[in-house]
Amino acid sequence: MSGYAFTFAGADLVALPSGGLHWPAARLLVVADLHLGKALRLARRGGGLLPPYETRATLMKLDADLARTDPATVLCLGDSFDDLEAGAELDPQDRDWLARQMAGRFWIWAEGNHDPGPGVIGGTHLAEWQHGGLHFRHIATPGGAAEVSGHYHPKARLAGQRRPCFLIDGDRRLILPAYGTYTGGLACGDPALGALMGPGAVAVVTGARCLALPYSAA
């Protein structure tokens, strides 16, 4: 695997090509914005009936990362479910699958704007989490320090392609790409992201392997 290793606020982290974040010393895997149950939520609201396979596609990706990193702790950094009902409506097969992944691990569901409360799936539900000097929350805060977040689904442009990316702004801020299958992205350069990134910020694009480039060029 070709992840991108870097040090953030004193922690040695690896950005995985899948969009997950691995902290080997802490035996921690962080994934943001899974948006499980998105297709079903859109259907419930009377929209198009999208291929209902995004949950298992996301879980398959997660399976691979779990096997690769063998974490003791898994942190889902908000918007894990597309809304609060989505957990209850998961296909039984998918729900069993998720339960198998959670078994024997400390599993944290951080709160997101799509899932702002505890659902019916087990695990620990937290608004935000601090660990080893890092501060984990769904949405970045203006004055954040050593802060790891998701929410924005950042995407970078590289050699004519647009790919999901990590954004690293010194030791202040780390933003994860969306991990879920049915997720779009916000382009680097969007004012919402630009306001959060300092001059030396780096974008790490995901894909077959991770590649770093300056945020200003992404």
């Binding site: 999208l50 291929p51 396979y53 995004e54 298992r56 596609a57 924005y152 689904h153 969306a178 299958t181 049915y182 997720t183 779009g184 992205g185 916000l186 382009a187 969007d190």
Partner: peptide, 22 residues
């Protein structure tokens, strides 16, 4: 709602992978 919209390519790939007879 830029970050909510995702590419139809993802739907195409997902369908091919999980429901090729669709």
């Amino acid at each position: 709602g830029r970050q909510a919209a995702f590419s139809s390519d993802i739907l195409y790939d997902t369908l091919r992978r999980f429901d090729p007879g669709h």
